[in-house]
């Protein structure tokens, strides 16, 4: 019996290792896509958008997810290089630890594009396709400020800040501050909650902020994936109300995920800055093709994104990736 068990385990392992897709596509290019994580809807949507774009063009995609481990990601990209891929699309863990990865691709003369998360400046060359985090956040928060004006009251505000090792988090914080500047008579920022992109920390932070400042009436999160943490904390405090109801806390976010879409539709979320994931995916693939063709490509390609709010919900929902994902569910 025990030998049968060993046999089954070996067979399962061999099956799992032998059943993968392999080989280059006959005519098209092979692109290695290495993501640091697939743990939030945004990254899943980005990964799927790149896959769909590559499939449409008849290209083969090699995939690798490093689960937040930059050393593993370096190994994975080296594997891509061994497989002689024609281009690499990378979501790095952070702006610094990806530099040896970019250098390895540079040495192999393989074009590399960073999707949604740029690298620090260095002698390693890459192209980054990122949302205009600063402007998009500033516009989203400006919309919330306009709504705040309508209340006629000075509001206490809180911001959930992401991992400050991630330049996107820094830009979103700066966009928030820029929007608030000049409106201090209307908005008093009483809590800056560090989340390190962690839902548990976000929830604990919001709970603490609401206990210390029960009158908070304005919350902005640097990513929509933290919205469930905010909702949970607001419900516990008895402050989760629809737009227009007494006690509604003005809520804004960034990303445009399915949760944000549902909250917008249900009338709980005022606005969110939507990253155009389809635009970013298409630009990433195009940048690789342009680099291969020897064309000049800027180091930074900005996705302008758009703000979706209660006033333009129907018009913009078709472009919102979260709404598309919600429709598929």
């Amino acid at each position: 019996m025990k030998y049968k068990f060993i046999g089954i385990l070996i067979a399962l392992t061999m099956f799992a290792t032998g059943c993968g897709k392999s080989g280059k596509s006959k005519d098209g290019l092979t692109i290695g896509v290495a993501f640091e994580t697939l743990q939030t809807e945004y990254w899943v949507a980005g990964f799927d958008a790149i896959r769909t774009d590559l499939e449409k063009r008849g290209y083969t995609m090699l995939q690798a997810i490093s689960n937040g481990d930059p050393n593993r990601q370096l190994d994975q990209v080296k594997n891509f290089i061994t497989r002689k891929v024609d281009g690499i699309i990378l979501v790095p863990k952070d702006a610094k630890s990806c530099l040896p990865i970019i250098k390895a691709a540079n040495e192999a003369n393989i074009p590399i594009v960073l999707f949604n998360r740029p690298a620090d400046k260095s002698d390693a060359h890459s192209v980054a396709v990122v949302a205009d985090n600063f402007t998009l956040t500033r516009e989203t928060v400006s919309y919330l400020i306009d709504q705040a004006k309508k209340t006629g009251n000075k509001l206490q505000a809180a911001i959930l800040i992401g991992d400050l090792g991630d330049i996107n988090a820094v830009k979103r914080r700066d966009g928030f501050d820029a929007a608030i500047q000049g409106h201090e008579d209307l908005i008093d920022v009483v809590a800056r909650i560090p989340t390190e992109w962690n839902q548990e920390k976000a929830q604990a932070g919001v709970v603490n902020a609401l206990q210390a400042n029960p009158d908070i009436g304005f919350i902005f999160t640097s990513s929509d994936f933290l919205l469930p943490s905010i909702v949970s904390a607001l419900k516990s405090a008895g402050k989760y109300h629809k737009i227009g109801e007494p006690g509604h806390v003005l809520l804004g976010g960034f990303d445009g995920d399915a949760t944000a879409w549902k909250m917008l539709k249900d009338g709980y979320l005022d606005a969110t800055g939507v990253q155009d994931v389809y635009f970013e995916a298409a630009q990433s693939v195009q940048a690789i093709l342009d680099l291969r063709a020897g064309k000049t490509v800027p180091d930074l390609i900005l996705d302008p994104g758009f703000v979706i709010h209660q006033g333009n919900l129907d018009e913009k929902s078709k472009q919102m990736w979260g709404a598309q994902m919600a429709a598929k569910k």
């Binding site: 392992t13 799992a16 290792t17 993968g20 392999s22 090699l62 995939q63 594997n79």
Partner: peptide, 23 residues
């Protein structure tokens, strides 16, 4: 390394590695 080169998804890699460690 081989699972990565085989272009398996992260889920298949995790399952296969789990099976190997269990073995």
């Amino acid at each position: 390394n081989s699972l990565n080169l085989l272009n398996l998804s992260i889920f298949a890699i995790t399952i296969a590695k789990g099976a190997v460690i269990l073995l």
